[in-house]
Nucleic acid binder design. Structure first.
Lengths: 176, 176
DNA sequence: CCCAATATACATCGGGGCTATATATAAGCC
DNA sequence: GGCTTATATATAGCCCCGATGTATATTGGG
């Protein structure tokens, strides 16, 4: 799923600036599974404009850069649906944490414990965030995705807590 | 986690060619969460060789390209541990399937059903593969990671099956 | 028995995307 | 008063992935 398609999708929810598109990845519904950086969003929006899939209106602001507010066009909506009708690329998951766990036997026990603690804290923060959404999910799709994300985080946290002793050294266990 | 570090990690399990490193991502233990393409592995191995983190021996073969068998050096092991002691980059998950589900209301009901069916089949295949590993997990880390992967896939499959009706149209339900 | 598919093996190019950086200002906090 | 955070756009450089190219051997189906 390239960044251009992702931008089109977000713009179906309403007009937005590049900055707001980026922010929406951190919000509820789009929380997990999707993200993109400024370095790809701004070029993507330029190309979408050239291709007529989005339109821009510049709103001048006092002593700030102009806001460039993008709207999806009819052609843009068609392009989005067309992209979703084609065979989807496979998921991609890269987890440096999990990679590190594969080599826990090469690390000092304290490091392994610290990594697991940090990862659990991160998961709990994500869960808390999705439990109290800033904007409630509007569509059935958003509710479905939010629920899936929560289910996966709950499973992951439970697994980490019940199995961490297997990779933490005996020293770590004694220290608890 | 850049590809160079990933290559170092895999080489701690034993010497390997670039081809074998790539294969190991599809295997048990390294199944999910980690992968890299030839287009990054071969350049990475060249650079690691220049930096003295791995060594190469070329094994000539009859009527085939020479095997370039890489071994990790002491400096390489130190570099791996050093990388794992630094703050880890955050996980990255990109799921075109989940993205598509966010826009299920824009798609024909049949398409949504087909996507969910395909995704369930994919998850089941992954689960079956990890249930019958080619090479049994050697370290506690590998067992831990394999178990985590299985737990997440099980949760995901259960969620899809119990919640799919929420985003499949009434027409799709009637057709079943 | 032949052909297609799969596996072994290395390598590169083009394009796409991320990180870091640059620029500018306002608001809130310590 | 200065630091951090938030708003807002933009680009250069590097990293990485996908596709493709080059060879050959084996295996399974028709």
């Amino acid at each position: 799923m390239d960044v251009r398609t992702i931008c089109l999708g977000i713009l179906t929810r309403g007009d937005a600036t590049g900055y707001e598109i980026k922010k929406s990845f951190e919000e509820d519904g789009y929380q997990h599974f999707v993200e993109a950086s400024f370095g790809s969003i701004y070029p993507a929006l330029n190309r979408l404009t050239e291709e007529g899939l989005v339109s821009v209106r510049e709103e001048a602001q006092e002593k700030r850069p102009d806001r460039k507010v993008y709207s999806i066009t009819k052609a843009g909506r068609q392009a989005l649906v067309a992209a979703l009708m084609k065979p989807l690329p496979e998921d991609k998951h890269r987890s440096p944490f999990v990679f590190a766990m594969l080599f826990s036997h090469l690390l000092p026990p304290g490091r392994v414990t610290a990594l697991i603690d940090a990862y659990i804290a991160y998961g709990e923060a994500k869960l808390a965030q999705s439990a109290q959404p800033k904007t409630k999910p509007q569509t059935a799709g958003e509710r479905f995705v939010t629920g899936l994300g929560r289910a996966i985080y709950l499973t992951m946290l439970d697994y980490l807590r019940t199995h961490r002793a297997e990779i933490e050294g005996p020293a770590a266990e004694a220290a608890e």
